[in-house]
Design a protein around this nucleic acid. Sequence first.
DNA 1: CCCTGATTCGC
DNA 2: GCGAATCAGG
Length: 193
Amino acid sequence: MSWTDERIETLRTLWEKGLTASQIAEKLGNVSRNAVIGKAHRLGLKARPSPVKADSDGTPRDTAKKAAAPPAAPKPKPEAAAQAATPAPRPAPETKAPAPAAPKPMQTRPTIPAAPAKPRAPGEKVTLLDLSDKICKWPIGHPGEPDFQFCGRPVNPSFPYCLAHCAEAYQAQLPRDRNRPSRAPMPPLPRVR
DNA sequence: CCCTGATTCGC
DNA sequence: GCGAATCAGG
């Protein structure tokens, strides 16, 4: 559907009224939240508190979007595949818990290529405050101890851990039946979207 | 995970 | 001009 004068007027009104982009999109119908935001900006309706816009000065949102740098940064694109990997003992961070330390390997298997990448400023610990959906939350050390920190490498997309730690956390539930040979359908490695 | 607005860029 | 995809933050 297109932006008729009427729809534009509605957009203006609701936007200035303070409704969120998604609310407006819903009222209008047949448009996405993104469409609303995009149109609002093009109309010059702007400036509503954005979560991301909180910069007081320094960080000028230098976001290097796509297209920016073709050569310089080769992003590691893992290619493991998996289906139903039974979530093995997950690390239990939080304030107590003896720490995951060793989600025991029930079966050895070749270690995954592992994720290089190093987003962290050299030397600094990854603390609770650094956590986000995008960095590996695998705890290193024991909570409460001075040097406790998190892995901090980039996550395997849609997982809470990096590729290497996904391999730790999600392992196949191998047959425990003694009678049956464990020919094991093997490798349920972390899926990579 | 849900949500927010902002931005980019292929169409 | 449009808006999906992405980002960055709550």
